Amino acid sequence: MAASSAASLPSSYEQLGVRIQKIINSPNAQKARSALIFRMPHESPADWDQMLAEIAENDNVTLAWRDDGGIQIFWVVPQED
């Protein structure tokens, strides 16, 4: 039985996605339409690059690389017609 539980563990990329999603969905980030993220030492640089590329593909989203290594994400919520 223990072997099957290993298959259900989220990948490192999925874990990164969950962490970033929590930051972006936080009330403060939603209010400011901005979030600051940093890569954690245990996170894969390849996962990080893939995540940033996917975030940057979204319309109305801007990424800004900071001198301290952080990345500021800004977004605009389009007006409904």
Rank of each mutant, 00 (worst) to 15 (best):
D59N: 07
R66N: 14
D67I: 15
D59I: 08
Q21D: 12
L36Q: 05
E43N: 04
D47H: 14
R19E: 00
F74C: 08
S44E: 06
R33L: 13
L63A: 06
S26C: 11
R19L: 07
P27I: 07
S34M: 08
A29R: 07
I71C: 06
E43H: 11
H42K: 12
A29N: 05
N25Q: 14
F38S: 03
A32I: 02
T62V: 13
A56Y: 08
Q30A: 03
E43Q: 08
V76A: 04
H42G: 05
P45T: 09
N25P: 00
L36I: 12
Q50K: 15
P45E: 13
P27G: 02
A56W: 10
I55W: 14
N58K: 13
K22M: 13
R66L: 12
T62G: 10
V61K: 02
R33V: 00
S34E: 09
D68A: 09
L36Y: 09
N28R: 09
E43L: 06
D49S: 14
N58A: 14
H42Y: 15
A56R: 03
K22R: 14
D81G: 05
D49T: 13
Q72H: 10
R66C: 10
A29H: 06
Q79N: 09
R33W: 10
T62F: 10
L36T: 03
P27H: 07
D49Y: 15
G17S: 06
R19Q: 02
E43K: 07
D81W: 02
R39I: 01
R33G: 00
K31W: 05
Q79M: 05
A35S: 03
G70E: 05
A64T: 15
V76D: 06
A35I: 04
E43S: 04
G70S: 14
A35W: 02
I71W: 05
A64I: 15
G70R: 05
L63G: 01
S34V: 07
T62N: 11
G17T: 02
S26I: 09
R66E: 13
H42Q: 15
I24M: 14
I55K: 09
N58T: 09
G17K: 08
A29P: 01
E80I: 10
L36S: 00
G70H: 08
A53P: 00
P45W: 13
